[in-house]
Write a protein that binds this DNA or RNA. Structure first.
Lengths: 355, 355
DNA sequence: ACGCATTCCGTAAACGTTTACGATCCTATG
DNA sequence: CATAGGATCGTAAACGTTTACGGAATGCGT
């Protein structure tokens, strides 16, 4: 309260310096915690900045030091993503921020419009130099974005693994573990004909999921039947379609593993139309546990994880690859497979062989 | 393909100018579509920029002209928001972008960490001058953020109305229409004792929803009973709690209106524990239609709207209040109430008076 | 041939910060 | 007392861009 209530509009560090009768350089050093400044004047500067509501103009700062203190999380807001992710990204964002906040890093989300090519969008964002580092999500099996970021020498980490050359940092859910666990459980319940749904194998997830499924079957000495792999969209309609195709098979499967819990609703509906009751006549295991999965009757057996904590891990992975922070987060783990835990429901408990 | 494949790293507009043997000022004018430049040289510049992959450094540009061409959408990623919104924000983002893209405006999302005060977070973002305009969401009944933005003279619009002084631009769902329609429908089905759930009346929505409910009852000559207003969290647990409180009442309601479809699952469970079947023994109307609401059995009667198109409207409202665009979007509509449409389910169809 | 308007382009000054460098003062040590 | 060295601060030069201003060249009418 040095000089009353109303202040002239704060124009910049220059005004602040004049007001304090200190040189502009010293003010900057004081604010940024540089060593060459008397502790007492630092206090004065901080107090005045607080009082006058001064905050450094980001553009000037970034221009000078080539850094923005902002980390970007790129997401694709395609219709399909929006319907499936069930706030996955908002949750992971919380985890990311809890780490970034410790280093005065702000997170912004960069939603790629669904009519723009993600690669071009990212190129624009990178060139604009508005973020210091990037997290990209929904990675493709071969994703040019990795090369772009590597070439631009901008630190990054991926939410979702990729096959790109070189070992780039990423974190991903343990789809392999999920499908293994699901198959184990179903086999233990007596199933031998187990179907699986997955997105197209272009999508990395589609590839991994089916590959894990194949290996799990092999472990149990069960032959892999291509007809039991249904490629479908990860939506309610996709689930309906999966059921439809399964019902058409000569020899029906007795169990099915779904890649997205949302598909279960469509599948439930379709099989019930055919007089088949999920959990009694056909076993269903879904992935992943989400608030909406609780709406199902019978409750879906699925897999739970803390998406928030996944964000925490991912943030540390990213920071470990940023020169300015790599001394704090040693580069031990560059890739990370995030575990999930089985949540038994009733969609696979009361198994009776169909027909 | 003027001079082979590899290019030296593009450092800035200066290099581009040297490469073209043109002055730096002309290059800038050419890129920005200024009139004082020969059409042919403009073509050359644009071609070279494309070829060398030059994109203007955002910091330098913003510093000079005080504008960033970026619009921010502030959201709060609190646990409750994340669980309830069902990707509401991602969807509205799509609508916003479809408008912004026409003006080369980029949208970024600013997720306020849940352990930070939204007001302080916004203040930081505003002071950093990283966005030209802002959209704020989840507005409180009295929300200091409006004053902050007005004082900072930064254009903004709100997703959700507010009571703040002055007529600030906003768009909001037609909660009044929803509750009116719900009451009308229930009354037409013979109900007189209609309960309602709503969040605390500090939240603007909680106030509006109950107020509309009161007026709707009045229109039908039904007395307003405070005991039938249940304040609960907008979650599954909240729905369970609502049912719990309703079951405890001396004279039970025969119908209940829920503010969030997610609450229906908890309510369903609780009333079924008591041997009461939703849709037969008690009528349930929910708000809003969401993918997950389809999981309910019986299907929930609820309200549908195009959140994407709401985003479009909101974007136009915002642009109309930005000096640079107000000639394109005349300031006719500054506030907008966005309609919803009833989606009849079966949760209120087979009404039989309880007891 | 002259004046004038128009078209195009180059020059240089800003925008707000950070930081290398050097200047000043003070203290301790010989 | 002389000097070294540390503590503290001021000065000025960058960072990459846009834009006001003025200059050169051209066209046109007289």
């Amino acid at each position: 309260m040095a000089h009353g209530g109303k202040h002239p509009p704060m124009k910049g560090i220059r005004q602040l310096a004049e007001h304090l009768d200190i040189s502009i350089g010293t003010v900057s050093r004081a604010l940024n915690g540089k060593p060459d400044v008397n502790e007492e004047t630092r206090k004065r500067v901080l107090a005045a900045a607080e009082q006058l509501g001064y905050v450094a103009n980001q553009s000037g700062r970034s221009l000078r030091q080539g850094t923005t203190n902002v980390i970007g999380l790129m997401i694709q807001s395609s219709k399909e993503t929006v319907e499936n992710s069930d706030n996955f990204f908002l949750t992971v964002t919380g985890g990311l921020q809890s780490v970034f906040a410790r280093h005065n890093l702000d997170l912004i989300m960069l939603p790629c419009p669904n009519d723009e090519d993600p690669y071009e969008y990212l190129k624009r964002m990178v060139a604009r130099r508005v973020v210091d580092a990037l997290i990209i999500s929904e990675t493709q099996r071969i994703d040019k974005r990795f090369d772009l970021l590597a070439k631009a020498k901008i630190p990054f980490a991926a939410l979702g693994r990729s096959l790109s050359i070189g070992q780039h940092p990423w974190a991903d859910l343990d789809f392999d573990g999920v499908v293994n666990c699901a198959v184990d459980r179903l086999v233990a319940l007596g199933h031998r004909r187990i179907a699986i749904s997955a997105p197209s194998s272009d999508i990395n997830l589609g590839f991994i999921f089916v590959e894990g499924y194949r290996r799990a079957l092999e472990r149990h000495g069960i032959d892999f039947e291509p007809a039991l792999v249904i490629r479908a969209k990860s939506s309610e309609q996709g689930g309906y379609q999966v059921a439809d195709e399964l019902l058409r098979l000569e020899e029906r499967p007795t169990a099915v593993i779904l890649i997205y819990e949302l598909m279960a609703i469509g599948l439930y509906r379709r099989v019930m139309e055919a007089g088949i009751i999920p959990g009694r006549d056909i076993a269903v295991v879904g992935f992943r546990e989400a608030p909406r999965a609780k709406f199902l009757q019978p409750p879906l057996t699925c897999f739970r994880t803390s998406v928030h904590d996944l964000g925490v891990e991912l943030a540390e992975i990213l920071l470990s690859s940023m020169p300015a922070y790599s001394h704090i987060y040693p580069k031990t783990k560059r890739q990370m497979i995030w575990p999930l835990q089985l949540v038994p429901g009733e969609s696979d408990s009361f198994y009776l062989k169909v027909e």
